[in-house]
Each structure stands twice: as C-alpha cells, then as structure tokens.
Amino acid sequence: MGRLTGKVAFITGAARGQGRAEAVRLAAEGADIIAIDIAGNPSAYVKYPEATQDELDETAKLVEEQGRGALVRQADVRDLAALEAVVRDGVARFGRLDIVVANAGIVNYGRTWEITEEQWQDLIDINLTGVWKTVKATVPTLIEQGQGGSIIITSSVAGLKGLPFLAHYASSKHGVVGLAKTLANELGEHDIRVNTVHPHGVRTGMTDGSMQEYLEQSPLLGPLYMGTLPYQVVEPEDIANMVAFLASDEGKYITGAQMRVDLGALNR
C-alpha cells in the first residue's frame, strides 16, 4: 500500500512539468487524481510553448498507468466557477477530496519599472489570485468532510528572496506564502495543513531565454541566482517528492512551513 492509498488529490497546472510529476507521484502513492490545466496560452507575455490538451490527456494516461483514476479537465485558475465545477465532478466520481496542490503558474521577465500593467496583472491574476480561487473552490469540501487534509502551494525561491527582473513573479510568490500562513492558522482546528514549496530552477521548459539577456546586461546580479550545491536545476520529480511527503501522514505535524528545494540558493 502507498502512503496515499484511498486519498484523492486536486492538482492545478497538471499538463506537464511539476504538475504532471506531482500527479504521477501521488498516483503512485495510491491517490486518485483530479487535474486541470488551461492547456492554452494564458498571457501574451508568456513566450515559452503553451501547454496543450494532448499533454493534459497524457497526464491522465500516466496516472491511469499507476492503477489510479484520473479526472482531467481544461480549466483556468482565474475562473472560480470552472474550478468549483471540476471539484464537484471529481468528488462525485471519487467520493472525497484530501489533497490540494495549487501548482499552476506562469513566469516572464522585465525590469520592475518597465513591466507593463497588463503584464503585471496577468501574472498576479494567475499566480496569486488563481491560488486563492483554488483554495476557495476546495476548502469548503475539506472542512465539510471533517477528516483533515493537506494543501500544498507552489511558491519559489523568489517567494523568499528578491530576485531581480521578477518583481511581479516575486510579489506573487511572496504573496502565496502569506496566504498559506494565514490559512494554516485558520484551518488548523480542522486538521487541514497548509504549506508552501520553494523550488529553485526546475527543468520544466518555463523559460524563454530573456532572463539570460538581462543578466548579461547586469552581471553583478547573477550571483543572486546561484545555489551552493553542484547542480544547475532540479527535476520536476524532485518537487513531487516533497509534495508527496507533505501530502502524507509523514508530514502530519507540519503546517505553515516553507519547504525549500533550492540547491542552497537561499543560504546566500
């Protein structure tokens, strides 16, 4: 038996990258999976390839290969009604909800004073408000069930450090830390734990190369991105390992925490 046998997890941004790795890992631990992704271009400022419906379908296939059920839908975390509908359908199918992984997010770059209003708003709407809407769509079910639960929010090294050329992204990722800490206090009486995970660079393809151009123009800022371990990036599965731990009873006494998978970048 896996650590999550009999559990059901809801994961956003699950078409590829960390979201897919988390879906597969939680399924391997015994959980059925409810998963969404926008499966399209969320913003004109996102220049890396968009996720697709085929990739979301592949996530479902990989979950089912683990012997678990998968309900996947195309949905935008900015659309509360869509999130609530998916949660209702998932709970109707699987009978419960235990784990929420608020993973969906985007990234783009710019000097703080050069970021456009639309660029700022698109990212905040997805990375911060989208997490709040994910919580709003799921927490009532967790409370009503009365059996506890685990909420895991994807933050970043940029959620604990002022990384340059990422003012909007860092603001959103700092914001979800505050949201998680508040929720951890509010939901503790219901035995619902809330934590954030803070990766450094993850091999997900969420980059368009423009960050390197900024760093070449401002080389003194490059060390802010360096870790202390001898690796360039971590793999999505490394983040999924942390998520699986926090979702399981092994993490039952951890809430309001910031769990770093950062190559030592936050040691600097």
Rank of each mutant, 00 (worst) to 15 (best):
G67S: 07
I106Q: 05
V107G: 10
V72F: 02
T112D: 13
N108Q: 12
R111C: 08
W113T: 15
G90H: 09
E65V: 08
Q119K: 04
R93A: 13
T112N: 14
E65Y: 09
F94D: 01
V77Y: 03
A81C: 08
G105W: 05
G95L: 13
I115T: 15
L80P: 02
E84Q: 13
R73T: 04
R73D: 04
L83T: 01
A92E: 12
A70N: 09
I99R: 03
E118C: 00
D79R: 00
E84P: 04
Q119S: 10
F94P: 01
D76H: 02
Q74M: 13
A75L: 06
V87I: 14
V107F: 14
A85W: 02
W120P: 00
V77F: 05
V72T: 15
L80R: 08
N108K: 05
I106H: 05
E117V: 04
G90K: 07
V91G: 00
V101L: 15
L80C: 09
Q74D: 06
V107I: 14
L97S: 09
W113E: 13
V107Q: 10
R111V: 09
A81F: 02
A92G: 10
E65G: 15
A75W: 00
G95K: 14
L71Q: 01
I99S: 01
L80I: 15
T112E: 12
I99G: 01
I115K: 08
I115F: 12
I115A: 10
D98G: 07
R88S: 13
A92M: 06
V77K: 04
G90T: 07
L97Q: 06
I106D: 02
G67H: 08
N103W: 08
F94Q: 03
